[in-house]
């Protein structure tokens, strides 16, 4: 668990982060979102002390980060940046081995860990371990960047616009991969982005920053149904709001008894996608199957729309 207490950063007269307090739960993904210059990167970089706070403190599992030597602190925290920051003179394996080497792991253990991570990120060790970063595609570089950050099994992973340099299709895949890996490893993730879509998709909780201040901190549903006035409302977007709300709920949670004609929907997709499908095929209801192919019932347009409404 990370606890940020009254954290501020000033450079001369400018205040970049203004008295932010928040708490990030163990094993969750927290997304810090905001426009550029809002102070979100600075906030993130104060967690691993790449930026020294002017005042306030950060506690990781109850321990003040200032009590730990900074390099030692960073060895325990994974760090991923936009454009990945891979070392161009080191191979994929050499890059991933960076922190284990700094920690003095044995060569054999490092080798095993590198192979394990490459497999986790669907990169064949035999093919990729010896390649240099410039020989990889953008998506592959990004995966190696995350693998490198996870090499020494950190409990906490900080990500600063990790998908910013990727094209939409690869970005979407990278987001899915991150979710899957995070669920599997139980790593606590703090991720900075300016992309609201990404925030809703990844964040267990979302922190919205504007002009150095934390203006709202809550779950996606809270942000949508009870946005803080002004900035968050605009950021969430009134036109997009109902659809974003729909995308937070899965079809399996709104299944009604009965049957319907047409091509069945998978129970795991979200309501936004279900609605899109129904509009496209021109039906008011569609049957729903679970992943094994068993019929669960049906879902209707009316049932879906009820979930996109403003909370009473």
């Amino acid at each position: 668990m990370i606890e940020i207490q009254n954290l501020s950063k000033r450079y001369d007269d400018t205040i970049v982060v203004d008295d932010v307090s928040m708490r990030m739960e163990e094993g969750s993904i927290t997304v810090i979102v905001g426009t550029s210059g809002a102070g979100k990167s600075t906030l993130l970089r104060m967690i691993n002390r790449l930026v020294e706070p002017s005042s306030g403190r950060v506690l990781i599992d109850g321990q003040d980060t200032m009590a730990v030597p900074e390099d030692e602190l960073r060895h325990r925290i994974g760090y991923v940046i936009q454009g990945n920051g891979l070392f161009p003179h080191r191979t994929v394996a050499g890059n991933i081995a960076t922190v284990p080497r700094l920690l003095g792991w044995e060569a054999k253990r490092i080798g095993q860990r590198v192979d394990e991570l490459l497999q986790l990120f669907q990169l064949d060790p035999a093919e990729f371990a010896g390649k240099y970063p410039h020989e990889l595609s953008g998506g592959q570089q990004q995966r190696v960047g995350v693998a490198r950050a996870l090499a020494a099994r950190p409990a906490l992973l900080l990500m600063d616009e990790p998908f910013g340099a990727l094209d939409p299709v690869i970005r979407s895949k990278a987001q899915d991969d991150l979710l899957a890996i995070q669920r599997r490893l139980g790593t606590t993730v703090v991720l900075v982005t300016h992309d609201m879509e990404e925030a809703f998709r990844l964040g267990d909780k979302i922190a919205v920053m504007d002009e150095a201040r934390l203006v709202q901190y809550g779950t996606a549903a809270e942000l949508l149904t009870h946005p803080a006035e002004g900035f968050v409302e605009r950021l969430v977007g009134t036109a997009e709001r109902p659809f974003r709300l729909l995308s937070l709920t899965r079809v399996r949670d709104v299944v009604e008894p009965g049957t319907a004609d047409g091509e069945p929907l998978d129970a795991s997709i979200d309501l936004r996608e279900a609605l899109a499908r129904m509009v496209w095929v021109g039906r008011d209801a569609l049957p729903v199957l679970d992943s094994s192919g068993a019929m669960l019932g049906r879902v209707s347009i009316g049932g879906i729309l009820a979930h996109g409404r403003q909370a009473p």
Partner: peptide, 22 residues
């Protein structure tokens, strides 16, 4: 590249390690 140095710092490389290794 600044991003490479930033990544090195973020992974806990000391000044000396950044200079000689990166």
């Amino acid at each position: 590249p600044a991003s490479v140095v930033d990544a090195a710092r973020g992974m806990g490389m000391s000044r000396r390690q950044r200079l000689f290794q990166v």
